[in-house]
């Protein structure tokens, strides 16, 4: 068993809606998996269950062999902070903080001193093409730049798995592709696994594997050639 993260027989309902109807999904270290599927099919719910944001109604989630789905909110929250990284569609950066402090925030929450956290955060800027943007605030960055800052923030704590829910959904196609490539490359470069929800088949192409969700079940677990 060399999966870093594995969900087994995951089900989740919201009232009458069955969002997940028994899903098995596992990710190996350093692997990038794209989740595709129509709107409302259960992609976000699957991501949230795997990331310990939401507790499934049934089934289990293991991180490096340890069950995380039955942990209390406080422990899951600590886990998300230390072992996972997140990139959302938009709005995740605090508007009042300059970009470098936004990236440094997870480190500071983990107890790293402010000076050290900011220093480490800034190391990410040039490689992600954000050189010179350290002091800008999110409102002064373009959409693509803001998402790259979000990528830096997700990776700065050296997480085991990065979760991205339509990270380029708010960007135009060219910028979206650039950003997605940066996300996949940077994640791999850091040895982290990536689970990314996307609508763009082209984007999915950069990942190792694509899975398709439809009405709460996994259709094809097609490995990429």
């Amino acid at each position: 068993m060399n999966d870093v993260l594995a969900g087994r027989a995951l089900t989740k309902r919201f009232g009458q809606t069955v969002a997940l109807a028994g899903v098995d999904m596992a990710v190996r270290p350093g692997e990038a998996v794209a989740i595709m599927g129509p709107s409302g099919s259960g992609k976000s719910t699957l991501l949230h269950c795997l990331a310990g944001i939401m507790r499934p109604d049934a089934g289990e989630v293991r991180l490096e062999g340890t069950r995380i789905d039955d942990m209390g909110e406080r422990r899951r929250s600590a886990l998300r902070r230390t072992r996972f990284g997140f990139v959302f569609q938009f709005g995740q950066l605090l508007p009042e903080l300059p970009a470098d402090e936004n990236v440094a925030l997870p480190l500071m929450l983990g107890g790293v001193t402010r000076a050290e956290a900011v220093r480490r955060a800034r190391e990410w800027f040039a490689p992600l093409g954000l050189g010179g943007m350290e002091a800008r605030r999110p409102g002064e960055l373009s959409g693509g730049q803001a998402q790259r800052a979000a990528i830096a923030r997700a990776l700065v704590t050296k997480p085991a798995v990065v979760f991205a829910d339509e990270p380029t959904g708010a960007l135009d196609q060219t910028t979206g592709h650039d950003t997605m490539r940066l996300l996949v490359e940077a994640t791999k470069h850091n040895g982290a696994s990536l689970i990314v929800v996307t609508h763009d088949p082209g984007v999915a192409g950069w990942c190792d594997r694509t899975v398709e969700v439809r009405d709460g079940v996994l259709l094809a677990a097609g490995a990429r050639a």
């Binding site: 998300r80 902070r81 996972f84 997140f86 709005g91 995740q92 508007p95 997870p106 929450l109």
Partner: peptide, 15 residues
């Protein structure tokens, strides 16, 4: 006003 940002921060594990 900042419910979205707060919610996302909480998702990412901010206490």
């Amino acid at each position: 006003d900042r419910r979205q940002t707060y919610a996302l921060l909480r998702l990412a594990g901010t206490p």
